[in-house]
Design a protein around this nucleic acid. Structure first.
Lengths: 335, 335
DNA sequence: AAAATTTACGCAATCGTTGCCGAAATGAAT
DNA sequence: ATTCATTTCGGCAACGATTGCGTAAATTTT
């Protein structure tokens, strides 16, 4: 079996002490220029790499961070992950990705797992099912650095980054109104998610500002975040067969959008329905029926989140001033 | 800052030696039943978890494995990852995911990174760009356990699992022939990939068995695996404007399929074209124009791959007998 | 009852790295 | 020439867990 070179190997070969080698490798001023050169040269030559386990044991740092998303298969999340990795690797951090699949149990288990694996910090987007935050609160109170992105938790005081969901929903709804639609239905996500409330409020505000009364019959929540296709199908059916049939539809998430489209394919006479939905899918423009979509700046959100987390982790003193950053989303109209 | 409980803490509290605690936790027969109970009870009580860094340093094992895929955003890969994780976590392994984005440079960098981070083994699906395998060979020769899945490397002797690409391509092509199509074009992936050759050969074999001569003009390679949409668009255009215009199209990958569909949306009069493509996308049935698709057993492939890897890692003696497992794919016809 | 064996535990070394303390050696200041 | 500061380096100990070896005491065997 292969055995990696260690500091001791270098020390022996160059007849200096391990301490000196260590210092030379970290470019300490406490070692002579000549010695430093010698060490660096030899280390390069034998392809030395530090042992992360030893470093981690010694420094009580793992140089790895944990990510908790609903699903890597979701385009929005895979794009955020790309953003996170782009920064993390260059800053020397390792990334461990876990998926909740929107299940509360898996979220709890995975977070425990990550914390026990001693990550230096956590990047979290909450699961759709979660209503009890105790597991997050506990880790937060133990001092584990946590940053929320996308689906945030307002109760916990830390850095957060998410889309300006209120404004995005407001803009999308208002644009529909300006185009002449009046009966605008809203397919919302699970009610406990921050993004759900924000988007719903934006929708309501746009209606109100344009003197359209909010109609409870035109609102449906998808409690499983679109995972349960039957649920979405039922919602779509019931909303379309309502007395005041909608002429437009505003959908709150990627997954619900596709589930909705699938449902609409079974229904005839829904062609004149204007649809706009949140989506970061890279094939959304190829779906039929065609829908307009709101695209979040997912990659950037990931980058901002990881930078916030690294700031927290590497801060010498406890941080008490936190920021919640909102990103603008872009709307793409079809047809 | 939070400080986790250690074996020493338990030893002190219970007035036994750390050795005894360690042995009790590992359920060694060398410690008395009573003591063992006491230790287990107390450990549970103070929520003891072993320190992975210490364990890793001591045992020269990291209990983490690295995954190398082109893209987590790709449905096929995200499904494989789900399969991998389902087994890995339950066997006590951590999973580190890296993406090559089909770039050779990133593949090399990421593999180095993983190896240096001292993973216990690697699960690899090759990047489309890679023609030089030296980086893989080197790690393999150093004794790092490696398992290939999907895009395998025949030159390296180890466990492999992939779809029966030859048979899948053969079946798809033959079905098209049976449906009456004669001019079947093939949009192939990057030529250096194992899956490309296998699928191409299956396509050719089906043609030959049905007395249809292979027509070079109906074959196009996408050297960037569909990443470069322009390249795919050009391929589609040139293939459709050929003298012997195809009546059917067999597409070799997910990404190329969607890029092709996007290209076809710009072209009129391609409606009568029968299309079948490899795809594990969960919205492929909603795309327009509608295509038939070959779905690989991605989740299962991930499970098999990780099990092979764990077998390699945990084997007490060097393994010299390797297996290459082929999975059947399923075809879904549209319309 | 003496000898042999088993049981149950402690000691100390080890994995690779680094912080801390101190010791030479050199140079500068008096 | 003596004192003092600085530079450059080595040695020790520790991070947390495991394990081979040693050894009392308890138990069994003869």
């Amino acid at each position: 079996m292969y055995k990696a070179a260690t500091i001791k190997d270098i020390a022996r070969a160059l007849d200096v002490s391990p301490s000196t080698v260590s210092r030379a490798l970290r470019d300490s001023h406490e070692v002579g220029t000549e010695t430093k050169q010698k060490v660096l040269e030899y280390a390069r030559q034998i392809n030395y790499h530090y042992n992360p386990a030893a470093l981690s044991l010694r420094s009580r740092r793992s140089y790895s961070i944990g990510i908790m998303v609903a699903d890597v298969a979701n385009s929005f999340f895979s794009q955020t992950i790309n953003g996170i990795e782009s920064i993390a690797y260059e800053r020397g951090y390792n990334v461990i990705i876990t998926q909740s699949h929107d299940s509360y149990e898996r979220e709890v288990i995975n977070m425990e797992h990550l914390a026990n694996r001693s990550v230096d910090g956590l990047l979290i987007s909450m699961s759709a099912q979660t209503v009890d935050y105790a597991h997050v609160t506990r880790l937060h109170e133990q001092g584990l650095p946590i940053v929320f992105f996308d689906r945030i938790l307002s109760d916990i005081d830390t850095f957060k980054v998410t889309t300006d969901n209120f404004r995005s929903a407001y803009n999308a709804t208002e644009a529909l109104i300006k185009k002449g639609y009046r009966n605008i239905a809203h397919l919302a996500n699970a009610p406990q998610l921050s993004i759900t409330t924000e988007r719903l409020n934006g929708y309501k505000a746009a209606l109100a500002d344009n003197d359209i009364p909010f109609n409870e019959n035109l609102l449906r929540h998808c409690y499983n975040g679109g995972r349960d296709e039957q649920e979405v199908e039922q919602a779509v059916n019931s909303i379309l067969s309502a007395a005041d049939k909608p002429d437009a539809l505003f959908i709150a998430s990627d997954r619900i959008s596709t589930a909705c489209i699938r449902a609409l394919n079974q229904i005839k006479g829904a062609d004149e329905l204007a649809i706009i939905g949140f989506s970061n899918s890279d094939v959304v423009d190829l779906l039929s029926p065609r829908i307009s979509y709101i695209r979040q700046r997912a990659f950037e959100m990931g980058q901002i989140a990881i930078e916030m987390l690294i700031k927290l982790i590497e801060s010498k003193y406890p941080v008490y001033e936190f920021e919640t950053k909102l990103l603008e989303a872009e709307v793409y109209w079809q047809k």
